[in-house]
Measured scan of single mutants.
Amino acid sequence: MKVIFLKDVKGKGKKGEIKNVADGYARNFLFKQGLAIEATPANLKELE
């Protein structure tokens, strides 16, 4: 799953980066902790 990092995550990505991560990792950790959001077309447009 592609995500947009909202904060730096050690060993995974830095704020503003778009990366592929495991679905479970994204849903169970990154999204719940507010560290990333899903890289949907709408979210990508907001990032620009």
Rank of each mutant, 00 (worst) to 15 (best):
M1R: 07
M1T: 12
M1V: 14
K2D: 11
K2E: 10
K2N: 10
K2T: 14
V3R: 00
V3F: 00
V3L: 04
V3S: 00
I4D: 01
F5K: 00
F5I: 01
F5L: 07
L6F: 02
L6K: 03
L6A: 02
L6R: 03
L6S: 02
L6Q: 03
L6H: 00
K7A: 14
D8G: 05
D8W: 07
D8Q: 03
D8F: 06
D8P: 05
D8S: 09
D8M: 04
V9Q: 02
V9K: 01
V9H: 02
V9L: 06
K10W: 15
K10F: 13
K10S: 09
K10P: 15
G11A: 05
G11F: 07
K12S: 14
K12N: 07
K12A: 15
G13W: 13
G13V: 06
G13T: 02
K14E: 06
K14M: 13
K14I: 09
K14R: 13
K14G: 06
K14Q: 11
K15M: 10
K15H: 05
K15F: 06
K15P: 04
K15Y: 05
G16I: 00
G16K: 02
G16F: 09
G16M: 05
G16P: 01
G16H: 08
G16Q: 02
E17V: 03
E17Y: 03
I18W: 03
I18M: 06
I18Q: 04
I18A: 04
I18F: 04
I18R: 03
I18L: 06
K19R: 10
N20P: 07
N20Q: 14
N20R: 14
N20K: 14
N20Y: 15
V21F: 06
V21S: 02
V21K: 00
V21P: 00
A22T: 12
D23M: 12
D23E: 15
D23Q: 14
D23R: 13
D23I: 15
G24P: 11
G24R: 12
G24F: 13
Y25G: 03
Y25N: 06
Y25H: 08
Y25F: 10
Y25W: 09
A26S: 05
A26V: 10
A26W: 11
A26D: 07
A26P: 02
A26Y: 13
A26Q: 07
A26R: 02
R27L: 14
R27M: 12
N28R: 11
N28V: 07
N28A: 10
F29Y: 14
L30I: 01
L30N: 00
L30G: 01
L30A: 01
L30E: 01
L30H: 00
F31Q: 02
F31I: 13
F31S: 02
F31P: 01
K32L: 13
K32Y: 06
K32I: 14
K32N: 08
Q33T: 09
Q33M: 15
G34S: 06
G34R: 07
G34F: 08
G34L: 06
G34T: 03
A36G: 05
A36S: 02
I37V: 13
I37G: 01
E38Y: 05
E38I: 07
E38F: 04
E38A: 11
A39R: 01
A39S: 04
A39H: 05
T40W: 04
T40Q: 04
T40I: 06
P41Y: 10
P41T: 10
P41W: 13
P41H: 09
A42K: 12
A42R: 09
A42P: 08
A42T: 11
N43E: 06
N43K: 07
N43H: 12
N43D: 06
L44H: 06
L44P: 04
L44F: 08
L44S: 06
K45N: 09
K45H: 10
E46P: 07
E46W: 15
E46D: 13
E46Q: 12
E46I: 12
E46G: 11
L47T: 07
E48F: 14
E48N: 13
